[in-house]
Amino acid sequence: MYKITIIAGARPNFMKIAPIIHEIDKAKQQGKDIDFRLVHTGQHYDKNMSGDFFEQLQIPEPHVNLECSGGTQAEQTANIMVAFEKDLMENPSDLVLVVGDVTSTMACALVAQKLHTKVAHVEGGIRSNDWTMPEEINRLVTDSITNYFFTTSETANDYLKKSGVQDHQIFFVGNTMIDTLMKQMPNFKKPLVWNELSLKPKGYIVMTLHRPANVDEENQLKSMIDEIMLNTQNTPIVFPVHPRTAKILDKLSINHNRLHTINPLSYLEFNYLVQNAKAVITDSGGITEEASIMNVPCMTLRNNTERPETMTLGTNELVGTNPKNMKTYLDKLFSGSWKQAQNIPLWDGKTSQRIVDTLIGFSQ
């Protein structure tokens, strides 16, 4: 039996591993010699990640929750490594599969290699080239000790090859987040806020902000929101507020009748809002991917992106962090001249099938 330990540490990781688990279950039913153990490091405590969350995405409850939330970057890395080392020693595995770029991704890859267990990285090779982002450090460290890379784009393949990774270690498979999105689209749920705010399709903009560069400096956050409100005509802005942003917003006297701050939504409710929005303003990487597949205009308030394919083939534009940049992009949106999404290679809902076929190949 080929045993795989799958690591998830934060909510987006579960969106990425859900379809992989479904494909492993399917392979088992077909008599293939493959099985998995799902380890939740507990890196992010999220009250929305209840039983309902796992049910919505049809993911089994994790076999274990290591409960390593809180602390500094270093403390959290150390706590995850200590807890996962014990777990992996008690439950040996042929391969540890890590996804994305959170602290758990790096910490569990380190533990696996030190215990002589092979590592596969889903979303290997992604780069923003911004070393101020903790995620970029996690990507660099993880990829430097990974055995097998499951990549989302040719750009990622190129980065890996330039860093010395051999062709036979790279598997260009696509994007598992899109597998989840495509599977769940028919299940999107209208959130309560839809009727409460009398929202209409293409009649509002969704905004999400959580990165330190945008929310930690109060004047920057206030200027950005003021600039957005100034250039969005009479369009309502729906802003599900990340906990770190909520604390800062509370201190600011931001008052706009059209700005509606709401609590974070479930995956199915949030994507219902995105799918029906006129546009999305965000600093999240994952949302740029989903907006591109749903052909919703997307403005990213960052100076770089690790997902260039969302710009070259998707609906995403890199606005930067200067609030004065907003007017140009919002004028373009309201003039009706925003670019349309094109097909992004292998973002077709079948990525997990390709990953599991490859894993089964490793076991033979």
Rank of each mutant, 00 (worst) to 15 (best):
Y2M: 14
P12W: 08
A18D: 12
K32I: 00
I34S: 05
V39M: 04
G42N: 02
G51R: 07
Q56S: 14
C68F: 01
S69D: 13
T72W: 01
A74N: 09
Q76Y: 08
E85W: 05
K86W: 04
P92L: 09
S93A: 08
D101M: 03
V102W: 01
M106T: 11
A112I: 05
N129P: 00
N129K: 06
D130I: 04
T146A: 03
T146G: 04
N147Q: 04
Y148Q: 10
Y148W: 13
T151M: 02
A156C: 06
D158T: 14
F188S: 08
K190M: 13
E196A: 12
K202Q: 15
I205G: 03
P212E: 12
E217W: 03
E217T: 15
N231W: 07
P243M: 12
R244K: 09
I248D: 08
L249H: 09
K251W: 13
H260P: 13
S266L: 09
Y267Q: 11
E269Y: 03
T282Q: 03
G285S: 07
G286A: 10
M294E: 09
N295T: 07
P308G: 10
T312N: 10
N316H: 02
T321Y: 01
K327R: 11
L346I: 08
Q353L: 10
T358A: 11
T358W: 06
I360E: 07
G361R: 12
